[in-house]
Design a protein around this nucleic acid. Structure first.
Length: 418
DNA sequence: TCTGGGGTCCTAGGACCC
DNA sequence: TCTGGGGTCCTAGGACCC
């Protein structure tokens, strides 16, 4: 048996921990630049605020219902997430951290009659130690756990639900197919065309037909709905196969210098992430796009791939390749709105095969990189930086409603007056 | 005025090999 | 008239996830 712990309205719940005045009030959290809604408390869902809607389109609702609005505070959410995961790990030895607010549990070692009590215990502990409410679904496969979790979020279930032989068919009957893990926009349209509306109908589909129309991923999904596990707990690999840093700019950018310093910053972040997982990359992609919502402006998308001669995680070296390419592909006369850097072809640094013509002293640069990383860790991000990154404040994110970093910054520590 | 960021996996088709 | 058979590797693009 598997379990799935899912934090309820995670970002909104994080904002409430240190600000109990927000309890029972509608809360929303916005994406970067305070653009779109990316988290909603139950109260916000009830007044009709949809996921992903641009903030400027719901101004009147925010005012009318006095919705509490927050900019994203990833330092806070990331730290709270680690605490939640640590508590779950203390109770269940084998877990897979699936996302910032979800973890799958391997429950195969436990007796079936214990399962509900274990889940209730996890719920209590997480709430007591972090203030985050969670829901837990238990079932034979991960996909069914997702269904169980969905049901657990129903008020009458008290946050815990187990799918067993008795309630199995009924549970699938009551859930529509687009809620199933792995059914997205396109698949939903396809299934609808054939009259497949409920999860139970999907479960009863012919596997060969599913395979030929929805490929092996669809086949696995349906098997999982039938209770055949195709997706084990994976707690091994934390190394990423691609690493991306991209941002939408607060203001549109026209100058090459601004573009260059932003690309330099994304490159720096990517290289840091790469070193953090002790890996090196062979390929970089850069992209720069104009604002697709501004139909009145000329549109342009630049996308370029760069191969390095040897895999590397050296910020300076990668910057060199990327900025030289940027200079070549940059086109004047457009208002750019978004840019990013992606690194791929990632392997562990100790697997890197040297190039006979490689002139770089890699031992020396490793010492420099380690030193820079350790200084920046102690003194704060970008304390030591490449000059090309600049100190340009016009590239800063718009974050008008940022809450304090209660748990990660000394200056933001909560003060209590008695 | 204003519209996020970061990932994974699969497949088809091209280029190549003997 | 008629033009084989069996592979691998790579990449772009699609679909999905949070």
């Amino acid at each position: 048996m598997y379990g799935l712990v899912d934090c309820n309205n995670f970002y909104a719940s994080c904002e409430r921990i240190f600000n109990p005045k927000l309890n029972k009030k509608p809360v929303i959290v916005l994406s970067n630049n305070d653009g779109c809604v990316i988290a909603r408390s139950n109260e916000s869902k009830r007044i009709g605020i949809k996921m992903g809607v641009p903030a400027f389109k719901i101004k009147s609702i925010i005012k009318k219902f006095n919705v509490r609005v927050f900019s994203t505070n990833f330092a806070l959410y990331g730290d709270i997430s680690q605490r939640v995961m640590a508590i779950i790990s203390d109770i269940i030895p084998l877990i897979e951290i699936y996302s910032i607010d979800e973890a799958f549990l391997d429950l195969s070692e436990f007796k079936s009659e214990e399962l509900l009590n274990i889940a209730k215990n996890i719920r209590c502990e997480v709430l007591k130690c972090t203030g985050i409410p969670v829901s837990i679904g238990i079932a034979k496969t991960k996909t069914l756990c997702k269904v169980a979790n969905h049901i657990a979020k129903n008020k009458s279930k008290n946050g815990v639900f187990l799918i067993n032989d008795i309630n199995y068919n009924q549970s699938l009957e009551n859930i529509s197919v687009e809620k199933i893990w792995g059914v997205g926009f396109k698949t939903h349209l396809f299934l609808k065309k054939y009259g497949i509306i409920t999860a139970r109908q999907l479960k009863d589909c012919n596997l060969k037909w599913i395979r030929s129309n929805l490929s092996v991923t669809g086949e696995r999904m349906v098997k999982e709905l039938c209770g055949i596990s195709c997706n084990e707990i994976n707690n091994t690999s934390i190394t990423k196969k691609s690493i991306c840093t991209s941002r939408t700019f607060g203001k549109m950018i026209t100058s090459y210098a601004d573009l260059e310093s932003s690309i330099a910053m994304y490159t720096t972040r990517c290289a840091e992430k790469l070193r953090y997982q002790s890996c090196s990359a062979k390929i970089a992609h850069i992209f720069i796009t104009t604002n697709p919502f501004r139909k009145d402006l000329k549109q342009n998308i630049i996308y370029k791939t760069i191969q390095f001669p040897v895999e590397t995680n050296d910020t300076g070296e990668i910057l060199n390749y990327i900025l030289r390419t940027l200079k070549k592909v940059y086109q004047k006369g457009y208002c750019y709105k978004k840019a990013g850097v992606i690194l791929s072809g990632i392997i562990p640094t100790n697997h890197v095969q040297c190039n006979i013509f490689d002139k770089k002293n890699r031992k020396k640069s490793k010492i420099i990189l380690d030193t820079v990383d350790s200084i920046n860790k102690k003194m704060g991000r970008d304390f030591v930086r490449h000059a090309v990154q600049g100190y340009n404040n016009t590239l800063k994110l718009k974050q008008q409603s940022l809450s304090p970093c209660y748990t990660t910054r000394w200056g933001d520590l909560l003060k209590i007056y008695i």
